[in-house]
């Protein structure tokens, strides 16, 4: 597993305590899991995502991510409606391992409250949290 200084933690996204990240793209928010999360899980073999159109509130589970011997729930870092899902993950779940902030994105959300993202952690705050784990 990676040491903390080896982690890729970009500063153009916000982070949630459950290790999801959120990036603003126009009026929408894109959500995935952090490099730390994918590294802890190991080789990801399956990602289960919600239906487009599902309305989910902050903290609600929107899917699961599976490695060979573990399953983790994915939680909404912000509330909103699922506007799109990353269909590529069905065939290629390894994208989450290889490009967690790029092609490994999971869902696109039309946020209920666009300000909700401001409550999430910055790169620095997230790094501090990881150091404390």
């Amino acid at each position: 597993m990676k040491e903390i200084h080896e982690l890729d933690l970009p500063d153009d996204v916000r982070y949630a305590e459950d290790h999801e990240w959120v990036r603003s793209e126009g009026s929408k928010l894109v959500v995935g899991i952090s490099d730390y999360a994918q590294d802890q899980l190991g080789d990801i073999v399956f990602v289960e995502l919600p239906e487009v159109g599902a309305k989910l509130s902050k903290g609600e589970a929107f899917g699961t991510v599976e490695s060979v011997k573990a399953v983790s729930e994915l939680y909404m870092p912000v509330g909103g409606t699922i506007a799109a899902i990353n269909g590529k993950l069905e065939e290629s779940p390894e994208l989450v391992n290889n490009q967690p902030y790029g092609q490994g994105w999971m869902v696109e959300v039309q946020p209920g409250d666009p300000k909700e993202i401001d409550a999430l952690m910055t790169q620095q705050a997230y790094l501090e949290m990881l150091k404390g784990l």
């Binding site: 073999v45 399956f46 599976e66 490695s67 060979v68 011997k69 573990a70 399953v71």
Partner: peptide, 12 residues
């Protein structure tokens, strides 16, 4: 596909 099973997913 053991993640379907009880020793990993427990009550789910």
């Amino acid at each position: 596909l053991a993640t379907r099973e009880q020793h990993i997913r427990r009550e789910k």
